[in-house]
């Protein structure tokens, strides 16, 4: 049977120029539940679907506020995310302490990118099995960054990572033009709709399984959960029935 000889460590290239362990780490991200982020001129929103292992357990944390001006959403290994978020918290406090400055988002993103890259070049390490969306506001305005286990970081207008996130990205691509001019509430609606598109048929967004994080110009990053998000869920999906009625025939037509 075929056996891959080039995935015994995270630093050896295959003859095809691939590092398999990094690619496997990216698979771990795809196993995590979906998170979505969108940025406009004034705000940036994160939305995440929380999972519970069983009915009796609590939901896994998906959005972590780091400093007052930004937070992260994670998809993949939560324990790896905790290591990264502790590092980010320390770096952010150090920036406030040593420079009296909120750390620029590009800078903190680059720092975790550099850290992740080290794991793909030093022997005996393994890549982080987590993808992050870093969202917040700094001196240059609102930003959304995406981080991958390979150490690749990119600034995004909108992004979705995690299980079935392709559906969310499709929604985001279709509505790309609207994001820049969107206000706070519109942005939340887009994020929730994108999130919903990634759900499997039998699932619904509820106050229990959804988290929202918002930051804006003059508005600190805040995590919203539970009852705080019920009105957003209601207003976003209130005419769900109508949507489905009108949408259903269209999809039928396309299919046929």
């Amino acid at each position: 049977m075929f056996r891959n000889n080039y995935d015994n460590d995270a630093i050896t290239f295959s003859p095809q120029g691939r590092i398999f362990q990094v690619e496997y780490a990216q698979e771990a991200v795809k196993q995590g539940s979906v998170v979505v982020g969108i940025v406009s001129k004034t705000h940036v929103v994160l939305a995440a679907l929380k999972r519970n292992a069983e009915e009796l357990s609590s939901y896994q944390k998906k959005i972590i506020p780091i400093d007052s001006h930004y937070g992260i959403a994670l998809a993949g290994l939560a324990s790896d995310a905790r290591v990264l978020s502790n590092f980010m918290k320390q770096q952010s406090l150090a920036s406030r302490l040593n420079y009296d400055r909120a750390i620029p988002l590009a800078e903190i993103t680059q720092r975790i990118g550099d850290r992740a890259q080290k794991n793909t070049q030093e022997y005996g390490k393994r890549p982080y099995g987590v993808g992050l969306l870093i969202a917040g506001v700094d001196a240059r305005g609102p930003h959304l960054f995406e981080f991958q286990p390979s150490g690749v970081t990119q600034e995004m207008i909108a992004s979705g990572i995690g299980a079935r996130s392709q559906m969310a990205r499709t929604y985001l691509e279709r509505n790309l033009d609207q994001f820049e001019g969107s206000g706070r509430e519109e942005l939340v609606k887009h994020a929730l709709r994108a999130l919903k598109d990634s759900l499997s048929q039998d699932k619904e967004l509820t106050v229990d399984n959804t988290s929202i994080g918002i930051a804006g110009v003059g508005e600190d990053f805040k995590l919203y959960e539970g009852a705080e998000i019920s009105s957003w869920l209601e207003t976003t999906f209130e005419n769900k029935a109508d949507d489905e009625e009108t949408a259903a025939p269209e999809t039928m037509e396309v299919d046929s």
Binding site: N98, Y99, R101, D138, A139
Partner: peptide, 13 residues
């Protein structure tokens, strides 16, 4: 210019 270190940043440093 927005993300340049300003006077208070420099003083703290």
């Amino acid at each position: 210019e927005a993300s340049q270190l300003s006077a208070n940043n420099l003083h703290t440093y």
